[in-house]
């Protein structure tokens, strides 16, 4: 792998070495008043160069890996892209018998379940993060709670799926029925909850991403300098003025980072969603209607797919990848902006 950025450094250190070796007492160079500086030894230079080279290789390897994946999936999806084109993302049939494939409902389901889960998880995650950092608990209890929340991240997603089926759905069904009967005119409640659906899937998904969001937000919040909190308290602010006005504000780019991480995880989550979302190809505003996501579509249909369907699935995978990358980029831009707004461009 050629490493273009390496050469100037190398030549620079070479020139330093030569300067040192040419040094003579008669010459008083203003830049090299060297008596305490010794030239880097050959080993130093080699280690330095080797490490830099290795870092470049690994950095490039990840890029190559992403490109290979894109190339492979793109290659497999190519016939489907040619065949369906834009209609793939604007229509809603998935019919292997008639070779009719399109993923609008899955795109809709992916985005709505993830964003809903993100909203719920951010609310609770930030709440938990505040609870764990702003002197509500004694340090020991704080540690215990933190460990428990981090354990949530270690539960396999199929277990979450089962939990959703056996506990979440039966629990929310009466509430959903009540909402549908009394507020059925509101589009969000326009269908009854028959079992799996968008809401149970999003609820379980939100609990799955909660540890990530809570942990990253907690780090961001506890990184807020104590001096800032003291400044606010010293002005006569109450705890509930300090937290939103200073703590959350200062930690906001970190909290956005937590949200981006959580959303990335939600978009790609497969198993629990395949078990809970209902796998139904329809676009509905109702929280209770069954839906589908791209990842669940792939997981459900891939094992028995024929050649044509497989190509369509690859197309769907490509779209999922694009959504994930897009979300991450938007997230990065938001984080950058926030950081810049907060620091006035000083960092």
């Amino acid at each position: 792998m050629p490493t273009p950025a390496q050469s100037p450094h190398v030549s620079q250190s070479n020139s330093m070495v030569s300067n040192h070796s040419k040094r003579s007492p008669a010459r008083t160079s203003p830049t090299f008043e060297v008596s305490v500086v010794s030239p880097p030894s050959t080993t130093d230079v080699l280690v330095d160069r080797g490490f830099r080279g290795l870092a470049y290789v690994f950095a490039w390897l990840t890029i190559v890996l992403v490109c290979t994946i894109l190339y492979e999936i793109g290659g497999h999806a190519f016939p489907a892209i040619q065949e369906y084109g834009l209609s793939f993302v604007t229509q809603s049939t998935w019919d292997a018998n008639n070779a009719q494939f399109s993923v609008l409902p899955e795109i809709w389901g992916t985005l709505s379940s993830s964003l809903l889960a993100l909203a719920i998880a951010t609310f609770f995650g930030v709440f938990i993060a505040i609870f764990l950092t702003q002197d509500f608990l004694t340090p020991r209890v704080e540690r215990v709670f933190t460990t428990i929340f981090e354990l949530l991240a270690a539960i396999p997603s199929v277990v979450y799926g089962l939990w959703g089926i056996y506990i979440v759905i039966p629990t929310i069904r009466p509430i959903a029925t009540w909402l549908h009967e009394h507020l059925g005119t509101i589009p969000f409640f326009s269908t009854p909850l028959s079992g799996p659906g968008l809401l149970p899937a999003s609820l379980v998904l939100s609990i799955m991403i909660l540890p990530t969001i809570a942990a990253v937000s907690r780090d961001a919040i506890s990184a807020v300098p104590n001096q800032l909190r003291e400044a606010a308290y010293g002005l006569g602010a109450t705890r509930w003025q300090v937290i939103p006005g200073v703590v959350l504000r200062t930690a906001s780019s970190g909290i956005f980072g937590a949200m981006v991480l959580g959303l990335g995880r939600a978009l790609g989550e497969t198993m629990a969603l395949a078990m809970l979302i209902g796998n139904s190809n329809q676009v509905s505003l109702s929280l209770f209607s069954p839906a589908n996501t791209l990842a669940a579509l792939l997981a459900n249909n891939f094992p028995e797919a024929g050649k044509v369907e497989e190509q369509a699935l690859m197309f769907a995978a490509l779209i999922l990848l694009a959504i994930t990358l897009g979300v991450n980029m938007i997230g990065t831009v938001i984080i950058d902006r926030t950081t810049r707004r907060l620091t006035g461009g000083t960092s």
Binding site: P225, Q227, L228, A232, G234, G236, V246, L342
Partner: peptide
């Protein structure tokens, strides 16, 4: 109390605003 008795700290600590 703190609204009547203000404080300035050793390290300048302006808010990020």
């Amino acid at each position: 109390v703190r609204r009547h008795i203000g404080m300035v700290f050793q390290q300048p600590n302006p808010f990020a605003m």
